[in-house]
């Protein structure tokens, strides 16, 4: 154990130290090669200009390199692989996409993904909005919010253990130790194997993501609600609007942009959902979604990179509109500066 801790310590030191070393070293070298400090003569001025041309790339270099290797290169590579056979050697045109189109498992995954998309973002945003409005008026609202927020810090695997325990099933007659079945039997129902119920099991998996993400929606929406100028609400009361009218006509329109951001953020997350399905059901009982299907084709049963890559491209194309929207938002923000 001690050896392991020491090893870990030195590994950490090496990784972090190397990174610091690069930035200090490269900048030191630049200042050293083109000195411009004490004197004010023409060469110092020239060296300063050379420094100013080189230094941005010293700062940006590692980031650009890592982004290229870890994100840009894989995107290009995946596009390439999706037009090739299982080993990635032979060009097969659109065959992988054609296969996907007629594959039952792929259709099922698309269906499940759409189901997730229809339910999770809406439910999270709605719950988040309700909780944000309710807790806004409580003195212990912040405590309440952080408790609802808490699952966001828990890993998907951890959450899966928690929820497997909730959904746990014991044979009829035995005492149920999963709370859901305990409640069902208490009211006289029959215990169920929840995560193996076809179709409905999707919703039991979605519950986990809703449980995790509602806190996110709550926090963002609560901040937006607090940003609404109070005088608009007061003016509406004076104008004779009731609480529900104030909520729907005055508050919601003012935080509409935020609601959209929350919705799209969770939508992107849902499109990439993977861990929950992997750890809860491992795609059994018809719960497969696109990311899991892709993972299975890539890493299981010998692997078919072409088909896996085609599924990856499908996911990316689905994410693309949101990507464009994101870039637009960022540009608009920049112009606002």
């Amino acid at each position: 154990m001690t050896a392991q801790i020491l090893y870990a310590f030195f590994t950490v030191l090496l990784g972090v130290g190397g990174c610091f070393g690069y930035f200090y070293g490269s900048n030191w070298l630049l200042d050293r090669t083109f000195p411009a400090n004490a004197n004010n003569d023409a060469s110092a001025v020239r060296n300063l200009r050379i420094q100013a041309n080189i230094r941005p790339w010293l700062f940006l270099g590692p980031a650009l390199l890592l982004l290229s290797v870890y994100l840009i290169f894989p995107v290009i590579q995946t596009v390439y692989l999706s037009f090739h056979d299982r080993a990635g050697d032979k060009y097969v045109g659109l065959a992988n996409y054609k296969w996907a189109f007629y594959d039952d498992q792929f259709r099922l995954s698309i269906f499940n993904n759409i189901l997730w998309l229809a339910v999770v973002p809406a439910l999270c945003t709605l719950m988040g909005l309700i909780i944000a409005v309710l807790t806004d008026r409580l003195w212990w609202g912040n405590l309440a919010k952080s408790l609802i927020f808490m699952p966001l810090a828990i890993s998907f695997v951890g959450a899966s253990v928690i929820w497997k325990f909730v959904y746990d099933y014991r044979g009829e007659g035995q005492q149920q130790i999963g709370i859901l079945n305990a409640i069902v039997t208490y009211f006289g129902g029959d215990p169920q194997v929840w995560i193996a119920l076809p179709f409905w099991n999707n919703f039991f998996l979605m519950a986990i993501l809703v449980w995790i993400q509602t806190g996110f929606a709550t926090v963002i929406l609560a901040a937006a609600l607090r940003g609404i100028p109070e005088d608009t609400l007061e003016a509406a009361t004076i104008d004779g609007a009731g609480p529900f009218k104030i909520f729907f006509r005055i508050m919601v329109p003012q935080i509409y942009g935020t609601i959209l951001v929350v919705w799209t953020t969770i939508t992107v997350l849902v499109l990439k959902i993977f861990d929950i399905v992997l750890t809860m059901t491992n795609s059994q009982w018809d719960t497969s979604v696109l990311a899991n299907l892709m993972f299975d084709w890539m890493f299981r049963g010998g692997g078919d990179f072409g088909r896996g890559a085609a599924i990856a491209i499908v996911i990316m194309v689905a994410v693309l509109p949101i990507m464009i929207w994101n870039i637009r938002q960022a540009n608009a923000e920049q112009k606002g500066h």
Binding site: L71, I72, V75, T78, M298, A312, V319, N326, A330
Partner: peptide, 24 residues
Amino acid sequence: LIIAIIVGLLVVPLQMSLIPLLKL
């Protein structure tokens, strides 16, 4: 341009990178 690309990369699905990187 660099800023726009970085913002665009925000939404690349992680799973997509795995195979090419593993090969690399």
